[in-house]
């Protein structure tokens, strides 16, 4: 399989490795740094990151749309948003470089990634939306649960 060529650059060509082995160690370094950042943030939990970045928009339909578009910044604590973004970055590098997705054809890549991403986003949206709704009913629907 000597003809099996690896694409050796990451960060859109910003870093180019000399060999596949070198690329693997480079990606390990990147993943370790990201994990270390996550752990440090998780232990110290800076107070400035413990609240969402924005407050919800008030008003009519435009505000509703704004709340949906910026929901990540309005309803999620900044710290959690950082964790989720870092996780997706890690997932990207594991899939692209360890699982060699970078070297597969575009069609196989899309076949796998788009399907999964679409279905997961859909599922997560539905379940979190419903969970939030049930919480709303519990809190505002005269359901006693503090006993």
């Amino acid at each position: 399989m000597a003809a099996h060529a690896h694409k050796l650059e990451i960060f859109r060509g910003l870093i180019k490795f000399k060999s596949n082995t070198q690329k693997i160690w480079g990606v390990l370094l990147l993943l370790s740094i990201i994990t270390a950042v996550e752990v440090v943030l998780g232990i110290y939990k800076p107070t400035s990151l413990m609240t969402p970045l924005m407050t919800p928009f008030e008003g009519g339909f435009g505000a509703l749309l704004g709340n949906i578009v910026f929901s990540g910044f309005i309803y999620t604590k900044s710290l959690n948003l950082i964790f989720i973004v870092l996780t997706i970055i890690k997932a990207y590098y594991i899939t692209w470089d360890f699982m060699h997705m970078r070297d597969e054809t575009k069609s196989l890549r899309r076949l796998v990634v788009w399907t999964v991403v679409f279905l997961i986003c859909y599922l997560v949206f539905i379940l979190l939306q419903e969970g939030g709704y049930i919480e709303f009913v519990y809190t505002n629907g005269f359901v006693k649960r503090d006993f």
Binding site: V116, L119, L123, L127, E130, G131, I134
Partner: peptide
């Protein structure tokens, strides 16, 4: 991956509930 995301999304559901 879809199985695991089902579990994790269910976890998110229960967590949002409480």
């Amino acid at each position: 991956a879809l199985t695991f995301s089902g579990f994790l999304a269910a976890y998110g559901f229960s967590r949002f509930k409480f």
